[in-house]
Amino acid sequence: MRKLSRSSGDVGKKITETIEAVSEAIEDTLVVSRKFARQDEETLGNAERIIDSVLRRFSRAASGLTESEELLRTENNAINYEISDVFVALQFQDRVSQILALVCDDLNKLEQHLNELKSQQADEGSSRSVNVEQWLEELSKTYTMEEQLTAHDGTKAEIKTDQPGITFF
């Protein structure tokens, strides 16, 4: 009986020791868990701060890009307008060049005609003159532009820049 009682006391003692050991282990685990939870919280906080900072930088960069795009678009439009203006000016130059070519041709023709009259005058002894009206009439037949016809009778020709331009058939 005494033996049984001593054995029971030993078992009780062992159970108490085991419970204490388990409690200590649980306590340690809790400490470690709390430490990890704190670390996780800090890591999460850091990550949020980093993401926030990256997003803010990205937003600034995107806004800068939008501004640059707008600027480029505006400059592109301005360049297009300038190209259009230059193109129109080139066409005016083309028209002037055509008119001058016609004037030069006519002056050459007149020179030739005057030389012929001069030689006829020398041969026949009679004086002949250029039929100015007929000459101008012939010249006006070679005109291809409205401005030439207007300028022909001495009116100042103004080139219309707002004419409709396109006729579809």
């Binding site: 190209i83 259009s84 193109f87 129109v88 066409q91 005016f92 083309d94 028209r95 291809t144 820049t161 004419q163 331009g165 396109i166 006729t167 579809f168 058939f169």
Partner: peptide
């Protein structure tokens, strides 16, 4: 007269210079 000559030659559009590239 010239424009009609173009039309008779099956030209589809007649553009008088100066014109804008966009036109």
């Amino acid at each position: 007269v010239k424009m009609n000559e173009g039309k008779a030659a099956d030209v589809k559009a007649w553009i008088v210079k100066p014109f804008q590239p966009a036109q």
